[in-house]
Design a protein around this nucleic acid. Structure first.
Lengths: 115, 115
DNA sequence: TGTCGTACTACGACTGTCGGAGTAAATATA
DNA sequence: TATATTTACTCCGACAGTCGTAGTACGACA
């Protein structure tokens, strides 16, 4: 069965994360689970990819973090919320997607021409 | 206006090239022009990207090269043709595209939810 | 004479992703 | 009670596709 390669998905992890943050602030583990369930296990983001995307996007001003220090056992959890710049970035990426899809589909042959 | 970033297109250059080679053997400069015109200038592949894709795909057995030595001025031109493995690779990538598109579109919000 | 188009090659840098390892507490299972 | 799994991360180095820059060389056109 076809699998989604990281080259293909590269550049979309950002919009996956931003899309989920549009609804609620959230944190790594939850985002990861949401991506998995929303795609029906078709795409499972790697932990390292996810957390490095957080760092990168925070540096770029697309998201902001805040820490919940009051978890059971004195544990912490780092939440992220989307910024206005993040919303704009998401919108731009969404437009880019429309264009990209158009371009790619010009190179998708139908079954007949493959025989 | 939206531009297509290399991260987004990454992983598709192979299928652009293979798609064109499905019809005829061809060479770098021509492939480049065909991509440009077919996408109405929306995507212009960089020379270095194109030629390194050739090398990579030949190494992977997806394409084969042959040289035309009889050009005017004693010049040469390297042509590429797709192999059976290349056709299979193309088919697999095409299936992957269907899946990828499905996945990505789950993260594309409609305008309303962005206000 | 000089620029543009054709047709490449070489080299090094960049960046997102990934594999592997490590940490540590809470909860579920045996 | 002992062990495995889940939760929630961090750090490090490697990989690979893309890209910027530069260089080569011939022909056609102005």
């Amino acid at each position: 069965m076809a699998e989604i390669s990281s080259d293909v998905i590269r550049g979309y992890n950002d919009i996956f994360i931003l899309y989920l943050l549009l609804k609620n602030p959230s944190y790594g583990y939850e985002i990861s689970k949401q991506i998995r369930t929303l795609t029906e296990e078709k795409y499972i983001i790697k932990e390292t990819t996810l957390y490095s995307a957080f760092t990168r996007m925070e540096k770029n001003g697309f998201i902001e973090s805040f820490v919940d220090e009051d978890l059971a056992g004195g544990k912490k959890r780092t939440y992220y919320r989307i910024t206005q710049a993040g919303v704009e970035h998401y919108k731009a990426k969404r437009e880019e997607w429309v264009l990209t899809k158009e371009v790619i589909e010009k190179f998708i042959a139908d079954e007949g021409s493959l025989l």
